[in-house]
Design a binder for these strands. Structure first.
Lengths: 236, 236
DNA sequence: CGCTATGTTGATCCATATCAATAAGTGTGG
DNA sequence: CCACACTTATTGATATGGATCAACATAGCG
């Protein structure tokens, strides 16, 4: 493990909202104590319950956040570049609530939590950015909670597909972002049930071949899914 | 509606973590623009989707946060004195994701969102407090999400009862904090199912009479519920 | 290739929702 | 204080969404 981050990674991290507004001096302080590492797929980076020693930044690849209880496991979220995870645990100096594993070969920056807290106390630009980021995280989980409590699995899938489409640019054919077994867990269902749910959307013009989805009738699908900006909008 | 908050309410609000560390001057600034109002039960204070004009503080009584979609409604959380709600929307200057209604006669302080954002930008003690509060809120929703995705309704009820007991001081008889129909919605089930779930806990020594719960065998109940600090601990 | 993980399909089971009827509270005005 | 209305809680019967188990198909990958 190499201490100190390669300067070539600085711009990527500096470009994050979270680090954009802070002073150069404080940014250097953070970077000096940080690591960057490449991980193969399926490596467990952190385990829920452990103390939060590092704020993590996904530079490339992707990371799954998941949780377990009583021998069951569920996928909570996916982190894609360039963004951070477990910010709340870092700030609160509390144990992680979720575990994290790489989904693919990933490059991850590790910033010591105590440095983050120290700079946070002295750099108001950084503090503001953290607030914004946390508020965003909070609202994302609330939306996800509404999705879970107010919709059936078929409705969740339909809306997931529409979000996916929007994210991909709005065309009528695009890639499902996940392996199906993982998507099932994210949507809170079993792989078998997901398989059937895709069939259940066939009457609304949804065709699936492997990871590829095509939407035959935008109108029918939307009429069924009833997307809602207070659940399905990523931006606000 | 009276503009300006009665000075008699200052200490309660000042006592909140959120307002404890800020300068007197900034605190006065916030209070000057604020209102305090008494509301009867069942009044809808805010509606999801509306712009976030005020940060709300529950001084007495209690408030339910709930959400709707497609003619369905679910209870998301309950806010009890003394604490705030919709902080994230205020900070992000984004629409509310949840609606709020009083459950009982309640005294609510309303602090203009733009004042909160202004003071937040200049008072670093306040900014720090907001970060801590938001991180707390985030972790609470994550726990609730884990509860929902990893447990059956019977397990959720069992763990709710244990949390309730702990909150009430640990005795073997205590008050369920809610009307049952509301508890059902909070736990993500129907009233009928809750009724049956209480019966389902009878073998583990749980007795319910009206709002009163008594636990006959702490050990049996805990063995079934398997409480977990990463889901059921309120404090961290 | 063939091995292993992933995806599909069918049969069945279980948890939970829904519908309907009754019972038990709760509050109101006489 | 009672009678009434109205909401909430319970119970039973039934329907349904979704999970589980098992078999098979398919797709990646060394």
């Amino acid at each position: 493990m190499n201490i100190g981050m390669p300067e070539s990674d600085y711009p990527d991290i500096r470009g994050l909202h979270l680090f954009a507004e802070m002073s150069d001096e404080h940014f250097q302080t953070l970077m000096r104590g940080s690591y960057v590492q490449n991980f193969p797929p399926q490596i467990e980076l952190i385990t829920e319950g452990d103390p939060s020693d590092f704020l993590h930044v996904v530079l490339s690849g992707s990371v799954e956040l998941f949780s377990s209880w009583n021998n069951r496991e569920t996928s909570m979220a996916t982190v894609r570049p360039i963004s951070t995870f477990i910010l709340a645990a870092t700030i609160k100096e509390a144990p992680y609530l979720m575990s994290a594993r790489t989904l693919e070969k990933s490059r991850i920056a590790l910033i010591p939590s105590q440095d983050v807290r120290k700079v946070f106390d002295t750099d108001s630009g950084f503090a503001r950015a953290i607030v914004t980021e946390l508020a965003q995280c909070y609202r994302t989980v609330v939306k996800s909670q509404k999705d879970l409590k107010l919709r059936t699995s078929l409705e969740r899938l339909a809306n997931y597909i529409l979000r996916c489409q929007r994210h991909a640019g709005g065309g009528d054919t695009f890639d499902l972002g996940y392996e199906k077994r993982r998507l099932a867990s994210i949507l809170g269902m079993t792989p078998e049930n997901l398989s059937r749910a895709f069939k259940g959307l066939h009457p609304y013009g949804v065709q699936v071949k492997g990871r590829n989805v095509s939407i035959r009738s935008q109108k029918d699908l939307e009429q069924f899914a009833k997307p809602d900006r207070l659940i399905d909008d990523y931006s606000s």
